[in-house]
Simulated assay, not measured.
Amino acid sequence: MRKIAVFTGTRAEYGLLYWIIKSLNESVNVDLQLFVGGMHMSPEFGYTIEQIEADGFPIVERMEFLLSSDSPVGISKSMGLALINAAEAIERQKPDLIVLLGDRFESMAIAQAAMIACVPVAHIHGGETTEGLIDEAVRHSITKMSHLHFAATEQYKRRIIQLGEKTERVFNFGAPGIDSIVKLKLIELDELPSAINFELNKPYIMVTYHPVTLESDGASSSLINLLNVLDEYPDHQLIITYPNADTNGRKLIKILDEYKTLNQSRVLLVQSLGQLRYLSLMKYCEVVIGNSSSGLIETPSFKVPTVNIGNRQKGRIGGDTVLNCDESVDLIRGALEKALSKKFKLFCQSTINPYGQGDSSTRIVEQLINYPLNKIINKKFNDLEDI
């Protein structure tokens, strides 16, 4: 049996990995080793390891490394602790392959430990660009430490190859997050209030705003601008999820906590909704607004408009349902007004999600189980003229 380790450090990442984890766990040819750490272990972010346990997956490593600090020094120390945890976990479990998704600093620490231990890495969602974040450098660094690559679009696949990776080890299977939209039985609109313990008696807007890690204040002023614009829509309720544990993330949490206090009946602010409730709410909302990748990747599958603010996702492919704008009040206001218009909503109904149709996880798992791993650890840089 092939021992395949999968690492997850955040609620969103786990949702994207869910069907991959499930398929690996059910395969008779795989010994699944689930490494769980980071935000999953933090009560401040919902202690979401309980959701993983409730799903029935075997957790072999519980990795405590996330400090209660989001300063640059605190994040760097968390990375150091994650590297130590990863080295020890890999030594104990001795996996044949490690699966990582995305661009979080925790994942880079796992990749570093795997590289030193000569364990091959399979990386999902490489080749993408997010110009406002340290994630840009992290993602490409993980690509160079990885051996199998699962890109979400053809353009991202080409970019991975441009980074010198062998063409035959780079696959475009689409985004695994779309799989949940296809496979899950989503909650009906009339059942959502009881599912989230919040009365939905008006049209609602979903809001997720993460720190912009290459900006000194994490984009706190931009979040305030967004909330000021949302105040102009009192006839809409707001479903707001917590930001990630990124640099300056707690500044945003403080702003959101204060906003919730002033808008008790209109605002639901949650640490984590989980994949089922999050996608179900997305399906019926008027618009998704903020700077989360889910607005670009998952939301278009519902034909729901997205207002993507600022630089956090700059450079990432967005479909025709996505409206990009700067962080000023006027530009956010203009984009939101357009997104809520009948004309744009009608236009969204004829669009296609560029990230695939929901068969990604099955195709990824097939490669994880069957791709030959002998000699894969020895990598040669492929120059573009050699391809």
Rank of each mutant, 00 (worst) to 15 (best):
K3Q: 10
A5H: 05
A5L: 06
V6N: 03
T8I: 04
G9E: 09
A12H: 11
A12F: 12
Y14D: 01
Y14P: 00
Y14Q: 04
S23F: 07
N25W: 02
E26I: 04
E26Y: 06
S27D: 06
L32N: 10
V36N: 07
M39R: 00
H40W: 07
H40K: 09
P43V: 13
F45R: 11
E50V: 11
F57Y: 10
I59N: 10
I59A: 12
M63Q: 14
L66G: 02
S68C: 01
S69A: 13
D70K: 06
G74S: 02
S78L: 11
L83P: 01
I90H: 09
Q93P: 02
P95G: 13
L101Q: 06
R104V: 14
F105H: 07
E106V: 04
S107P: 02
P120E: 07
V121Y: 00
H123R: 04
E128G: 10
E128D: 13
T129W: 03
T130A: 10
E131Y: 07
D135N: 12
R139I: 07
I142M: 02
T143P: 01
K157W: 11
R159I: 11
G164C: 14
G164P: 12
E168W: 08
F171M: 14
A175C: 14
I178H: 08
D179S: 09
D179E: 13
V182Q: 09
L184K: 05
L186I: 09
E188C: 02
L192M: 00
P203Q: 06
I205M: 12
I205L: 12
I205S: 06
M206Q: 12
V207T: 14
V212K: 07
T213G: 08
E215A: 11
S220I: 06
S221R: 01
N228G: 00
N228S: 13
L230F: 10
E232F: 04
Y233G: 11
L238F: 02
P243A: 14
A245E: 14
I253D: 08
L256G: 10
D257H: 07
Y259E: 05
K260F: 13
L262A: 13
R266A: 03
G274F: 06
L276C: 09
Y278A: 15
L281C: 05
G290T: 10
N291Y: 04
S292Y: 02
S294Q: 13
S294K: 06
I297Y: 02
E298L: 05
E298K: 03
E298M: 03
E298W: 08
T299P: 09
F302W: 11
V307S: 09
I309P: 01
I309T: 05
D320T: 09
T321K: 02
N324F: 04
V329E: 06
R333G: 02
G334P: 01
E337L: 13
K338G: 04
A339C: 07
S341H: 05
K345N: 13
L346M: 13
G356C: 01
Q357I: 15
S360L: 09
Q367C: 10
Q367G: 00
I369Y: 03
N378D: 15
K379H: 11
E385A: 15
D386K: 15
D386W: 15
